[in-house]
C-alpha cells in the first residue's frame, strides 16, 4: 500500500473546493492546496493579516516586505484583491463569512474536536495565532494531515490527548489514506484514496470508522 504524497493530498482536497469560494489556507501543508486551484474558478484566498484575494508567492524581483501572508512569507495580490485591518479580518473569520478554512492537524477526535496549536510541552511558550478563531468561525473546516504520526500513532483518535483548538469544529479530514467526514454518528469514511481494506484502514485509526454501506 502506497500512501499519497503531500502534493497528492493537497490536490485531492483542492478538488472539493467549489468555484467562487472564500477560503482561508493555514500555514504548512495546507499552503500546497493553492497550487492546485484553477484561477478560472476564482476561489478567493483570505489571509488573517488583512488580505482577501491573495495571489501566489512573490517572485524574487517582486518581494515586498509589507505584502506578506499569515506565515510572514512574501505573496502577491490578485487584481480585485483588498486590504483591511485586523478587526475586519477576524470579523471575516469569526463572523462565519468564510466558506472554508483548511488547517493542518495534530489530532482530530471522533466528535470533530481539533488539536493543532500546542504540544503542551512545559517551558515552551504557547502560541495560538489565529487557529482558534478560524476553527470556530469558518462555515467548514477541512483538516489536511497525515493519517499517522511519524511513529505510526493514529492522528484520528477517540479523544484528543493534546490541548484542543476547538470542540466539534472539524467538518472533514483529508489524509494520505482517506477522506473522512465528522458526522453525527462519528467518523464516516467518504473515500479511500489508496488500495487499502476497511480493516487495515480501521487498524491505522484511533477512532471507530463508519464505512459506506454497499448499495
Amino acid at each position: 500500500m502506497q500512501r499519497l504524497t503531500r502534493q497528492q493530498m493537497a490536490q485531492r482536497l483542492a478538488k472539493d473546493i467549489a468555484p467562487g469560494s472564500y477560503v482561508n489556507i493555514g500555514i504548512g501543508m495546507p499552503e500546497l492546496v493553492a497550487n492546485y486551484l484553477d484561477p478560472a474558478d476564482e476561489i478567493l484566498l483570505h489571509s488573517e493579516n488583512g488580505i482577501l484575494g491573495m495571489g501566489p508567492s512573490a517572485p524574487e524581483n517582486e518581494i515586498d516586505l509589507e505584502m506578506i501572508n499569515a506565515g510572514k512569507k512574501p505573496v502577491t495580490l490578485l487584481t480585485g484583491g483588498a486590504f483591511f485591518h485586523h478587526v475586519d479580518s477576524f470579523a471575516i473569520m469569526r463572523g462565519g463569512h468564510l466558506d472554508l478554512c483548511i488547517m493542518g492537524g495534530m489530532q482530530v477526535s471522533s466528535t470533530g474536536d481539533l488539536a493543532n496549536w500546542s504540544l503542551g510541552r512545559p517551558g515552551e511558550p504557547p502560541a495560538v495565532g489565529g487557529a482558534m478563531d478560524l476553527a470556530v468561525g469558518a462555515k467548514k473546516v477541512f483538516i489536511l494531515m497525515e493519517h499517522n504520526a511519524k511513529d505510526g500513532t493514529p492522528k484520528i483518535v477517540e479523544k484528543c490527548t493534546l490541548p484542543v483548538t476547538g470542540l466539534g469544529v472539524v467538518s472533514r479530514v483529508y489524509t494520505d489514506l482517506a477522506v473522512i467526514e465528522s458526522a453525527p454518528q462519528g467518523m464516516q469514511v467518504i473515500e479511500k484514496l489508496v488500495d487499502i481494506s476497511d480493516e487495515e484502514l480501521q487498524s491505522l485509526t484511533g477512532a471507530v470508522l463508519h464505512f459506506p454501506v454497499a448499495q
Binding site: 478587526v87 479580518s89 504557547p126 478563531d133 468561525g137
Partner: peptide, 25 residues
C-alpha cells in the same frame, strides 16, 4: 497568550467603549 482575533477585538472594545464581549473563540 491570546487568540489573534481576540486581541484585535479586545483592543476594539477598549477603543469603542465596550466593556467586554463574548466570543466562541
Amino acid at each position: 497568550c491570546v487568540p489573534q482575533g481576540t486581541i484585535a477585538e479586545r483592543l476594539h472594545a477598549a477603543g469603542a467603549g465596550i466593556g467586554g464581549f463574548f466570543t466562541r473563540t
